[in-house]
Nucleic acid binder design. Structure first.
Lengths: 329, 329
DNA sequence: ACAGCATATGTTAACGATAACATAAACAGG
DNA sequence: CCTGTTTATGTTATCGTTAACATATGCTGT
């Protein structure tokens, strides 16, 4: 900036001002400065700016996996909402591992983000402590814990699956299975299984048709493998709820390979309303948790908090929608 | 750090050293410092560190879409390879828009990354200029231009599709169609179409069975719509190559809905070897461009360049693999 | 026992921007 | 025409860390 200042015949401070849209610099001066900057091939240094102004314009975001259309949609909603304000997302993925999440949070906080968004309501004790003491807005998503660290925007995974079970029972089914991961690494997946078991028990039904499909996240292939095992061991099963649409689709293909009619002999449902659920033949019954909205509302919340506007509620509930399609009757 | 130094009875410089793994600080001093830091709830400030040391440990990465399993795999490969060195990815997506890419590159360069990775070999003139003058390693991926800005790791999209056409022709087919986007927004998709046309013409075949499926990226649904139009207007088509597995799967579902036998009456092939290609019934013939490898080798290249190790080649070619599956004969 | 070197720590200044305050010039209203 | 205010610009110090250099202490080999 000093070089530009010299070339344009002004002080460095005026150069600094010329780069800010709102500050008071005469048009002639600004033009001269921008021209000089261009001639010199100057590139603004955000690092220095951040240090002095104590504003990085980073929003830290951690998601379990970068390879997941649902989380991707949430990130899209978020970055769309933040872009206008010049806030940049610092994205990291945890691989569904809380220890990795802790490491990531620690790294991110060193970068002094304006706010931090994490996925889920469960974290290591140290991660919780770091978030609590971070002194910036903390938003949890994709879950709806009773006592969020700061704010939470999400839904109860257990309740969502419960609604699906209720629907199946109301339609007269009783022998319902659940395909999910075989650990609690994916806490949202684990919550869905908990919801399944609770709902089945509430109806006085057998809640033990649980197929462990592998280490989360469950792929299409693992869904297919789990369906194979289900058909082999519990052939009288009437319906299967899968932890995600991807595993549900895998399960569906296994039925196709074995000539098992869906929904004629077996119903299949997924979770997430991925594109494949709507276009598969038959189309898959699923639950839409509105991932884009989660991101968009998170962005709004962050802007409100940064501006100190009113006092937003600590818990914002998103209502997932049950989508009944051809795969279930 | 000054507070910690006071509490631990050392100088701030020693505190700074205590946070670096390799620097010479006695064990006793380091313990005292880390304890003091912990007691004070200190969080290291990377911004200040970056400014002074002129090292941000950021690697800027732009991809067309965050919601794409192939690019996600490349990012995974990249971040896996960079993690050990403490390099953090600054990820942004362009929405397949070169103007947006330009904006993103400009923003990213202000953050002073150690290197920048972009997708594709085509950029706006200003983006090119910025990259050329950035003074850091520039790596283009997912393409193989003759004259990369800095380095390139990728493959020729046109050649890959050409190989597939050759295979179909060798199998005796001649009426082959291509389903792709209806603009050149997705330059890789456009290159694939170019490869299709060139290959068909090289065989003396009609290269006009081109179905425009919508604005890239083409979804499963758009693939289905395009297949519908193809079946309506060119019912004697023997095979369809789709710009991606997702559109190919959509096309397959349309055939299923219409009772068109695949591969009996029509062959379908995709691109990308997404998981769905392998598990769909019938499994889809496709091309695997090894997205993970692209990322992993990009990471290796970056480390080599940052360390000034030897002089890596400017162009590194990845050889995509043609995977023949049930959907084509 | 002492030069020579490695190890542990301290001092000073600087990275590149801008917040905070100061000032000169232009402008408005009575 | 003068005071009060707005607009355009300048000056100074600083954000929190670390590079570069300096120094003290301990250790090695002869």
């Amino acid at each position: 900036m000093a070089d530009i200042a010299r070339l344009a015949g002004v002080s460095p401070m005026t150069v600094s001002r010329a780069f800010k849209a709102d500050s008071s610099v005469s048009d002639a001066t600004r033009d001269a400065i921008l021209k000089a900057a261009d001639d010199l091939g100057y590139v603004f240094d955000s690092t220095a700016s951040s240090l002095r102004s104590q504003r990085t314009d980073f929003i830290a975001v951690t998601i379990p996996s970068i390879n997941n259309a649902n989380f991707a949609e949430t990130v899209r909603g978020l970055s769309e909402g933040l872009k206008a304000r010049g806030l940049q997302i610092l994205l990291g993925y945890t691989d569904y591992d809380m220890a990795e999440e802790e490491r990531l949070i620690e790294q991110f906080l060193r970068r002094r983000p304006e706010a931090i968004v994490v996925t889920g309501g469960r974290h290591t004790p140290r991660a919780r402590r770091m978030l609590q003491n971070a002194g910036i807005p903390v938003i949890e998503t994709w879950d709806l814990p009773e006592d969020p660290i700061g704010h939470v925007i999400g839904f109860s995974n257990a309740d969502a699956v419960r609604g699906m079970v209720d629907h199946f029972v109301a339609r007269g089914l009783s022998r319902i299975a659940f395909i999910g991961g075989d650990t609690t690494r994916d806490t949202r997946g684990a919550d869905r299984r908990v919801g399944f078991i609770a709902a089945m028990q509430a109806h006085g039904l057998d809640a033990t048709r649980l197929i462990a499909a592998g280490i989360p996240p469950i792929s299409m292939r693992e869904g297919a493998g789990a369906m194979g095992r289900l058909l082999d061991t519990l052939p009288d099963t009437q319906a299967v709820i899968c932890v995600s649409d991807l595993s549900a689709f895998g399960a569906l293909t296994e039925c196709q390979r074995r000539g098992v009619d869906v929904p004629g002999r077996l119903w299949i449902a997924g979770f997430g309303d991925y594109e494949i659920a709507g276009i598969a033949v038959p189309a898959l019954t699923t639950i839409n948790p509105f991932p884009r909205d989660i991101g968009a509302r998170t962005a709004d919340l962050i802007l409100d908090l940064l501006d100190g506007r009113d006092d937003p509620p600590a818990r914002i509930a998103i209502s997932p929608a049950l989508l009944i399609r051809q795969s279930t009757g």
